[in-house]
């Protein structure tokens, strides 16, 4: 729609590598990002997720490999020519400009007709529900409002790809959940490809079509939230996305989610116990209760139980039997 920008918005990362001196920040990343999908790069700090995003944005040169947009290499296209929207960590709004001027900036620098710009800015203000704030400066807005201005500014020129660098990091927890829903909703409405960087597993699970778990500059596992949660392939994936117990069985290491274990007072279970132990601690979270159970061999298993469905009055120090279904455990690769 803008600036002869008719890219579809699919991205192909091919053997992408970034070195800072001898340090490898991103290591041989191969990734296909579908047009219109909400893809999250999830990983702890130092996992290379932000470096990867900055290379896609064009702010960092790539050491080797290639980035393609709809099959055409953009590795040598400078950041200002890539036409990718970006929501920065801390928003990076222009503090001396009003909300309207911030949002219209991308169209202003492309010298679009005034009427078109004005109409488009109105559209964007509607999208992020900030119509009455158009004449304010960013400093006069709350964190959540600034975040929406940043989003509107990045989407105003209808980019094929929107890059988001921990955009909710500065918001408090309650607001974050609210904004997650708004973001998801906006993604549905604009149909732009979203590449979202976060270290927050809840954000990743609740918004993404697909999640890329990264560690030490490499991709650990890619999949839908459900695939990653139910079928983690590595110990890191299992422990970073959600919580997990690990069992060393005959055929190798298995992951077992805490909520997939049932807990019974010793000898009262209907089925044979898979493990027996004593309750070390009970933590009450309202909807769930967390039991830390010491089992044989100095190991501890976490068991999460629905408070409402918990049939037994269990106490700390009590001997218990633990049971779970066969399909609850997932075998992990590389031990």
């Amino acid at each position: 729609m803008v600036g002869g920008n008719n890219a579809q918005g699919s991205l192909q990362l091919k053997k992408l590598q970034k070195k800072f001196g001898s340090f490898v920040a991103v290591d041989d990343v191969d990734l296909e990002i579908q047009q219109g999908e909400f893809l999250t790069l999830l990983g702890p700090s130092g996992s290379g997720k932000t470096t990867l995003l900055m290379m896609i944005a064009g702010f960092l040169d790539i050491t080797s490999g290639d980035i393609e947009l709809d099959g055409l290499s953009i590795a040598n296209v400078p950041a200002e020519k890539r036409n990718f929207g970006m929501v920065f960590q801390g928003y990076a709004l222009f503090p001396h400009m009003t909300v309207r001027e911030n949002i219209s900036y991308a169209l202003d620098v492309r010298k679009r007709p005034k009427a078109e710009i004005s109409a488009r800015v109105d559209e964007m203000l509607d999208l992020v529900q900030l119509h009455e704030f158009g004449e304010r400066k960013p400093g006069q807005l709350s964190g959540g409002q600034q975040q929406r201005v940043a989003l509107a500014r990045a989407l105003c020129f209808a980019p094929p790809v929107l890059l988001l660098d921990e955009p909710l990091g500065a918001l408090d927890k309650k607001l974050r959940v609210e904004v997650q829903e708004q973001l998801k909703d906006i993604h549905r409405r604009v149909g732009t490809t979203f590449v979202y960087v976060t270290h927050d597993q809840e954000e990743a699970l609740s918004m993404s079509d697909r999640i890329v778990i990264m560690q030490d500059g490499a991709i650990e596992q890619v999949g839908t939230p459900q695939e990653l949660y139910e079928k983690p392939e590595t110990k890191f994936a299992a422990s970073f996305l959600g919580k997990s117990n690990f069992l060393n069985l005959k055929d190798g290491l298995h992951a077992l989610r805490p909520e997939k274990i049932d807990i019974h007072p010793a000898g009262q279970g209907d089925v044979t116990a898979r493990a027996t132990g004593t309750i070390r601690s009970i933590t009450y979270f309202g909807s769930v209760q967390k039991f830390m159970v010491s089992v044989e061999g100095d190991e501890e298993l976490e068991v999460d139980v629905d408070s409402w469905r918990n049939r037994y009055p269990l106490k700390e120090g009590q001997a218990v039997d633990l049971t779970w279904e066969d399909r609850a455990t997932v075998k992990l690769r590389n031990g």
Partner: peptide
């Protein structure tokens, strides 16, 4: 990051300098 944002939004070097 504010200057990066300007570049990302398509502004040339001189546009970023004079406007931001």
């Amino acid at each position: 990051r504010v200057m990066s944002a300007s570049r990302n939004l398509g502004a040339t070097g001189s546009q970023t300098f004079f406007r931001i």
